Amino acid sequence: GPRYPLIAGRVLAVIGAFICYRTTSIWMLIFARVIWGLGDASFFCIGMTYVSKLFTSEKRGRALGVFQAVELIGSFLGQTIGGYVAGLYGARINFLATTIMAVIALASVTLIKGDGSTIPTKARASLLPSRAEMKKVLNRTVIVACIINLVCMMNNNGIQGTILPIYITETIGLDLTLYAFLVSASTVGSVTGNLLGGTLSDKMGRKKVLQAGFIIGVIALAGITLFTGFYPLLLMMFLNGIFWGIVYGVVPAYIADAVPDEVRGIGIGTFRTFMDMGGLIGPMAMSMLAEYVGGTQGYLYTFYFGIVMVLGLIVLTSTLKDTVIQKAPSAVH
């Protein structure tokens, strides 16, 4: 069940945050961040699995969309408030505040009961997944969904997180304040994409909504290369956020639908692993491409490469079957 792993993860987060608050050593700070990261990673993986088990396929997309949207809102508020507090009182006080919030989160997860599943949980002989379990997980839908997540995370971290700030501030010439507004527009778009994508995927099917999200992503990336004015870029960043929000909300629902209940945690864990791989590979790959081409063209080529990858995902997604079964309307007598 999720209760004890979630408690263990929150304990690690409390310890990591408190060490960050107290330490004066850079090495101890790095060690604390590793502990903290382990706790947070377990929360997102287990939390998504738990939410996916609480709802049937007809409502799962909406539920996961809300779950992801709340995560994004928290991230946005944390960065904004944290920066303001650090400016007034110094960076260290943020770690103390985070420790207190981590304790509150720890108290909250102790209230969780059961595992959200309608199937009785059997005791496992090993913490590692068996070959039979991996066969259940690694079906075509899960493999394609993981590739989608890998590519989109490469785009998100490699282009938006690494190349875009340099391109916007140095090539286009917008100042950091205006760039902050662009990032905010992307965050608003991501929250919107999560909520809309999850809800619409329950009603229209995961496949159609996911492909619509990819089309929006292509438009956004192409628009960023074409426009240099602040307001057009603001719109493109909002659309880019919607693209990422739809992917981030619909793909885990797709995976949760495609694997049996008893191995859903392994499926979600695989999804998160490919997500982290994309976050690691993306900045390195896009930076190497930009440096190889050189100059402004180097930045633009990373956007073009991103567009090509997303177009490839549209084709790849077209090979999938939808996992949401649409109910036929009842006859009126």
Rank of each mutant, 00 (worst) to 15 (best):
182 L>C: 04
151 V>C: 11
188 V>S: 01
183 V>N: 07
183 V>G: 09
165 P>V: 12
156 N>L: 15
132 A>P: 01
178 L>R: 13
189 G>Y: 06
185 A>L: 13
175 D>N: 15
153 M>G: 06
138 L>V: 09
144 V>E: 03
178 L>A: 14
155 N>P: 06
170 E>H: 12
167 Y>A: 05
148 I>N: 14
190 S>F: 02
133 E>A: 06
137 V>M: 03
131 R>K: 08
154 M>I: 07
186 S>Y: 14
152 C>G: 07
144 V>N: 07
133 E>G: 05
163 I>D: 02
145 A>G: 12
190 S>K: 06
139 N>S: 08
173 G>V: 07
192 T>H: 01
132 A>E: 15
164 L>R: 01
139 N>D: 08
194 N>Y: 11
131 R>S: 06
163 I>L: 08
151 V>P: 09
129 P>W: 03
136 K>C: 05
160 Q>W: 00
172 I>Q: 05
146 C>W: 04
160 Q>F: 04
147 I>R: 06
140 R>Q: 08
157 N>G: 00
175 D>Y: 10
187 T>W: 10
159 I>L: 12
140 R>H: 11
161 G>S: 10
155 N>K: 05
164 L>H: 15
169 T>Q: 14
186 S>R: 13
177 T>A: 14
157 N>M: 12
184 S>Y: 07
193 G>P: 06
141 T>L: 10
184 S>T: 15
176 L>V: 13
158 G>T: 13
137 V>K: 05
171 T>I: 14
162 T>R: 04
148 I>C: 12
160 Q>I: 02
168 I>T: 14
149 N>R: 09
184 S>E: 08
178 L>H: 14
138 L>A: 12
185 A>N: 10
165 P>G: 09
161 G>V: 04
180 A>Y: 02
191 V>Y: 00
146 C>K: 04
188 V>G: 04
135 K>G: 06
179 Y>D: 01
136 K>P: 01
169 T>G: 11
177 T>D: 15
192 T>W: 00
194 N>Q: 06
131 R>L: 09
155 N>Q: 12
129 P>N: 02
137 V>E: 02
146 C>Q: 01
156 N>P: 02
138 L>D: 03
141 T>N: 15
153 M>I: 00
137 V>S: 04
185 A>M: 12
163 I>Y: 03
162 T>V: 01
177 T>P: 00
143 I>N: 05
150 L>D: 12
178 L>C: 02
154 M>Q: 01
155 N>A: 10
145 A>M: 05
147 I>V: 10
192 T>N: 00
149 N>T: 14
133 E>H: 07
184 S>H: 08
135 K>D: 01
162 T>S: 12
168 I>R: 09
155 N>C: 13
135 K>A: 08
189 G>V: 10
189 G>T: 09
156 N>T: 10
170 E>G: 00
149 N>E: 15
135 K>C: 03
159 I>T: 12
173 G>I: 05
179 Y>I: 04
148 I>W: 05
164 L>V: 11
153 M>A: 11
137 V>Y: 00
175 D>L: 14
159 I>W: 04
135 K>N: 04
188 V>M: 08
147 I>G: 03
176 L>R: 15
153 M>L: 12
184 S>Q: 11
